[in-house]
């Protein structure tokens, strides 16, 4: 469905600004992911702390989006696509905020690890984060473009993330069974991986919101086919 402009230009500007705020929030989460990769692979507590320090920015942005959206609803009384637009923005921003929280959890685990982990832990987890990161970028693109197909593709990507998560869990289990001394780092990585996997779930939720935003109908396909 092509979108034509509103008769009131300022209304378009406001809706665009809302999208812009979501995207910049998503970018901030993206940057956090970059930072956490760096912190993890170096085992740097300092860098992990930096991730935690940046989190309030994202919280603040979410609150800004909330107030902005509520204001827009009150003043413009959006209907149909516009209404879905605003409501989706509210929901997406909530998801992004949750995602940022998960990244903070990962950062806290990194602090607890304290040392530079062995590469066989790092490589799969970084791969996992990278694929989540690409999902995030894709979903943001799909959101900006209002691209239903792209959102679907992102949604499908999540199965890959799930699979690599499951693979990594199995790997960790074997490490733990090999040597009980591995249990402490393995548990940390288990939680880290779990958090990253949750990120993927939130991204699929965002993809579902994009679908709702475009079609006005719920995502009917079942999550696990």
């Amino acid at each position: 469905m092509t979108t034509s402009d509103h008769i009131v230009k300022a209304y378009d500007d406001e809706l665009n600004h809302l999208t812009f705020m979501i995207v910049s929030m998503g970018k901030k989460v993206d940057v956090q992911l970059d930072r956490i990769i760096e912190a993890l692979s170096e085992g740097s507590v300092e860098k992990a702390k930096k991730v935690i320090d940046h989190d309030p920015e994202i919280d603040l942005l979410e609150k800004e989006i909330d107030t902005y959206a509520v204001r827009l609803i009150a003043l413009r009384q959006p209907l149909a696509t516009d209404l879905r637009n605003v409501i989706s923005a509210l929901k997406i921003s909530a998801h992004l905020e949750r995602m940022a929280d998960y990244v903070v959890n990962v950062a806290k685990r990194t602090c607890s690890l304290g040392t530079k982990p062995l590469p066989h832990y790092i490589t799969p987890i970084v791969r996992l984060i990278r694929s989540v990161q690409s999902m995030l970028r894709d979903v943001l693109d799909a959101y900006v473009q209002r691209d239903d197909q792209a959102a679907h593709r992102v949604w499908e990507q999540d199965t890959e993330v799930d699979e690599s998560y499951n693979g990594f869990v199995r790997e960790l289990l074997t490490y733990m069974m090999e040597d009980p001394r591995n249990i402490t780092p393995c548990i940390h990585f288990l939680f880290i991986a779990k958090n990253i996997e949750r990120l993927g779930d939130h991204i699929t939720n965002i993809a579902e919101h994009i679908h709702y935003l475009i079609h006005g109908t719920l995502w009917t396909e079942s999550r696990h086919t």
Binding site: T3, S4, H6, I7, H215
Partner: peptide, 20 residues
């Protein structure tokens, strides 16, 4: 009608868009 109209013209009308 007000959340998800089927017709593009209805949508344009209720969301205050220029006639397409």
């Amino acid at each position: 009608i007000f959340t998800n109209p089927k017709n593009a013209r209805t949508l344009d009308y209720i969301t205050g868009r220029t006639y397409r």
